[in-house]
Amino acid sequence: MNGMEVKAKLVEGTAILYPGAYLNQLRGEVIEHRCQALLDQGVRRLVINFAETELINSIGISILLGVIETVNAANGTLLISNLNESNRELFEMLGLLSHLCIEETEERALAKFHSCA
């Protein structure tokens, strides 16, 4: 671990993670480890809230791909919420949208979690 903190909370069995302003290697690795730890604890529903995220670099994307695979391999479900326009375009360009369930807000992600899963 690299000492970087990533905010997270647990709401009725669903873990919500907040990558912060810049999803790079440091934050990406923390999210990766937190997700793995949550899965190990039995949590199977995860939301990554990108509300504060202004920038995602290529390393962040690569780590995010790893998180998607890890969650899928553990029969979990990952939802993405609060993507800004720029990040949505990036995800679209990279073909990520078809592999992710995306909700406008965290509340909607929590509410619609089951239907998406």
């Binding site: 290697q25 670099n57 290529s58 390393i59 994307i61 690569s62 780590i63 791909l65 990279l94 073909g95």
Partner: peptide
Amino acid sequence: DLGNEINSSKDFDEVIRTSLHTCLGTLAI
């Protein structure tokens, strides 16, 4: 990012690992 990584003073194995991430993340591989 790749240039910064390659020119960093980090452990070389770590540089290569991160460089691979950069490569994969660029095209979502």
